[in-house]
Design a protein around this nucleic acid. Structure first.
Lengths: 344, 344
DNA sequence: GTGAAAGCGCTAACAA
DNA sequence: TTGTTAGCGCTTTCAC
C-alpha cells in the first residue's frame, strides 16, 4: 500500500493524505480521522526511502564499530551503549545504522556514510588519544557526538564522558587511606583515552602522598580475564608483591581474584581488590571493594544522552557543542582488609 | 556532488555516468576510466536513498534487538554476532539497521521495517519456544534468518543453530563417566530455546544411565554471575550437594567458581565444573573443565553465516530455506577431580 | 481546507 | 556505446 493507492481509495489527493498523516494543521479534523483510520486499516506506513529523498533527511544515525584484529573483538560496554541510544532513537522515529569495519577502513566508512547521505549524524565510539576521526568528522560537517574524549583536544566538538581520572584518583586515595603502599593498577590498553586518564588519576593520588609509582605494578592490556590473571600472578610473585589491586574492569577483576586465590591469599584480608561492579549486594562480605565508573546502567544512560545530543544538533545545527563530564557514583564498600574502614 | 552535477561536469549523460559507476558492460573502457577518476576526485557516492527508491531495494538488513525489562539487558553473545554479520554486510555493500525495542513492541517493529521498506531482510535474535515472530515474518514475506530455533516448529524457515542438546548430552555423559552422580545444571531462562535444549540434553544423558534427575540441582535463570553464585551456594548447602556443575555460560561459571571456593571446596578435586570457554590455555591445570558450545568466534561465524543466508535469499527469493545445525567443538579438558580422565 | 504539479537523485526501459 | 525519458513514493510549494 502506498500513498497513491491510499489516497485514491479515500477519494482524496496525495497531498491531503500526506498532510493528515504528518499532523499538518490545515487539514480538517474529519478528514484527518478518516485518513488515520484508513492508514491503520490498510497498515500503511510511508516509505522511508521516498520520504528521505523528498525531505533530504535520512532519519538515521550512524554508529561505526571498529573491529580491530589487534584489540578486543568487541568493546564490552558497546552493547549497553547501543541499547541506550536505541531507546532514544526509537522514541524519535530515528533508525540506527551500524557499520562494522576494520579499523583501517574506518575513515572510509565515515566518509561513505556522509557522501551516500545514509545518516544525519554520527556517534563515535572508543576515542583514542588525538583521534584523527575528530578532524575528519569536522571536515565532513555531519553532526557527531563522541562517547568519551580524544585526549586533550580542545576543539569544540560534542562529547559525553565519565570522569575517569577523578574516579581512579579517589579509589587510589581510598586504598592509600587504608594504609596500602604497593597498589597495583590493572588497566586497559593505554591508546584508549579512558585508560590513560585512569592511570593519570592513579598516579596523581600516589604523587600527592609521595608514594613512588612502581612500573612493575602497572599493566595496560586488553581487558580480558586472562590478561588480568597473568599480570596479577606475575605481580604477586614479585619480592615486593602488591597488597592491593585497582582494576579497570569487572572482567579483569575476576582474573585478579583468581590469581589471588591461587596464590593462597585471602581477598579482603591479605589483599584488597578495588574494581567496578553493578551489584554491590554480595560484596559487603569482605570479598572485594567495588568502585563505580562505568556500570551497565550508566553506559546505557550515556548512550541515551549521546543520542539526544546528536538529535538536538540535527534539529538545530547552530547549537553549540555539548560537553558533559559525568561524575561517577564512586561507591566503595566495606573492606575487611588491612586497616579496613567504611568509606562512602 | 550529485549525479547530475558530475555528469554535466564530464559532459556526459547521467545514464552513462551511472552505468559506468555501476559496472555495466556497455560502457566503453575509456569513458569508464574518466568517470571513475572524476567520481573519486570529487568524492562522489550515489545517494543511497535515491538509489533505493529507484531500485526498490534498500540495501539494508534489519536486526531487532528486544530489550526486556525482565531479562538480561542485552544478550551477551549479541555483540559478537553483530560483528560477524557486519563483516558480511560491508563486504556486500549492505547496511545493518538496528532496532532496539521493548519486547512488547517487537511485533510492531518488524511490521514497520517491512511497511516502511527500510530493510530487504531480517535477522531474528534470541528465539523462544513457539516464537510468534516466525508466523509474523512469514506473513510479512520478507526474507529472514533465525539465529537459533523456535522450538520444534517444523515450518520451512531458515535458521542457523548450535546443537545445544547434543553438546550438553555429551558433557553430561562425560561427567557421568567420571563417576559423578549428583550433577547440577546451571542454565539460562527456559523460555529461551537454547536453554530448553540444553536441559533436554542433560536429562537425556541422565536417563540413559538411570540417574534420577534432581530438581533441586537444576536452576534456570538469567545468566549472570550473581544468579549462578546464589544457585550454586544453595545447592552446595544441600545435604546431598552436587559433585559437579554443568554451567550454561562462562559468566555463570565464574559465579559457580566463587561459590565453590567460598564453601572451602577445591575445584577439580572436590567438585568438577564443566563450562564454556574461549581459551583453554589456563584450564589444563585442573581448575575447571571447559566445554565449547557457543564461543565468541563461533558466534561471530554464525553472524556471518546468517547474514550470508539472508543475502542469498534476497538475491534469489526462490531459494529453499537453509537450516544448519552446527555441531560444536566440544573440547573437554583434563580434570583432576574425582575419577578424572582425559576426554576429547 | 484541498488539490495540482514539481522535484528529491537515482535507475532502467527504450531509442538512437 | 550513448542519450532521452519515465518513473520510484513521498513532501512541499503554489494556486484555488
Amino acid at each position: 500500500m502506498n500513498l497513491k493507492e491510499l489516497s485514491s481509495l479515500l477519494g482524496l489527493s496525495q497531498t491531503t493524505v500526506s498532510r493528515a498523516l504528518n499532523g499538518y494543521p490545515e487539514v480538517s479534523e474529519a478528514t484527518r480521522q478518516k485518513v488515520m483510520a484508513a492508514a491503520k486499516k490498510y497498515n500503511y506506513a510511508p516509505s522511508s526511502r521516498a520520504r528521505s529523498l523528498a525531505t533530504g533527511r535520512s532519519m538515521a544515525i550512524g554508529h561505526v564499530i571498529p573491529i580491530s584484529s589487534k584489540h578486543e573483538m568487541v568493546n564490552p560496554i558497546f552493547a549497553d551503549f547501543i541499547a541506550g541510544a536505541g531507546e532514544t532513537y526509537s522514541r524519535s522515529g530515528y533508525d540506527m545504522l551500524l557499520s562494522v569495519v576494520n579499523d583501517e577502513d574506518e575513515e572510509a566508512a565515515y566518509r561513505e556514510m556522509a557522501t551516500k547521505g545514509s545518516v544525519d549524524g554520527i556517534i563515535v565510539h572508543g576515542p583514542r588519544e588525538n583521534d584523527p576521526r575528530i578532524e575528519l568528522l569536522m571536515e565532513i560537517g555531519l553532526p557527531f557526538v563522541v562517547h568519551g574524549r580524544a585526549g586533550n583536544d580542545t576543539r569544540p566538538y560534542s562529547w559525553v564522558d565519565i570522569n575517569n581520572g577523578h574516579s581512579f584518583r579517589r579509589a587510589t586515595d581510598f586504598l592509600l587511606d587504608l594504609g596500602h603502599r604497593r597498589i597495583a593498577l590493572i588497566n586497559g590498553i593505554e591508546s584508549m583515552d579512558f585508560a590513560r586518564r585512569r592511570r593519570l588519576g592513579y598516579e596523581a593520588a600516589l604523587a600527592a602522598r609521595n608514594v613512588r609509582p612502581r612500573p612493575e605494578l602497572m599493566s595496560a592490556q586488553e581487558m580480558t580475564e586472562q590478561n588480568a590473571y597473568r599480570s596479577a600472578r606475575e605481580m604477586l610473585a614479585l619480592p615486593e608483591a602488591p597488597t592491593a589491586f585497582l582494576v579497570s574492569s569487572y572482567i579483569s577483576a575476576i582474573g585478579v581474584r583468581r590469581a589471588v586465590s591461587q596464590a593462597g591469599l585471602k581477598i579482603g584480608k591479605d589483599v584488597s581488590i578495588v574494581t567496578h561492579d553493578d551489584d554491590l549486594s554480595y560484596l559487603r562480605n569482605g570479598d572485594e571493594i567495588p568502585m563505580f565508573t562505568a556500570t551497565k546502567s550508566s553506559v546505557r544512560a550515556a548512550g541515551r544522552r549521546c543520542a539526544e545530543i546528536v538529535l538536538d544538533h540535527i534539529a538545530n545545527p547552530d547549537l553549540p557543542p555539548v560537553q558533559e563530564l559525568w561524575e561517577t557514583d564512586l561507591t566503595l564498600g566495606l573492606s575487611t582488609g588491612p586497616a579496613a574502614k567504611e568509606f562512602t
